[in-house]
């Protein structure tokens, strides 16, 4: 499957592989520190009660990201 989407569009329960962190985004360094580099597998776990942020499974830990920040992460759904 060759479908690149921003992470915030990844449906709950689906997994994806990180392809690119948008250049120039403020959260880049922080995301890198969490191990969100190319080819990292992420899974959308669940949304907060009001629909945002969303919790993602990243390298064995659960990290919540706001949709604006998740939009900077381009993934390939798997």
């Amino acid at each position: 499957m060759d479908q690149y989407i921003p992470l915030n569009d990844l449906p709950i329960g689906r997994k994806a592989r990180v392809k690119l962190l948008s250049p120039g985004s403020e959260s880049r360094r922080r995301l890198l520190d969490l191990g969100l580099v190319s080819d990292t597998e992420v899974e959308a776990l669940q949304k907060s009660p009001s629909g945002d942020p969303t919790a993602y499974q990243i390298r064995g830990t659960v990290i919540a990201l706001r949709s604006e920040d998740a939009a900077d992460i381009i993934v390939e759904a798997i």
Binding site: E26, L34, A64, R66, D69
Partner: peptide
């Protein structure tokens, strides 16, 4: 504007 946000849920 709100800044970026990454919160770990341990």
């Amino acid at each position: 504007l709100p800044s970026s946000f990454a919160l770990e849920l341990p």
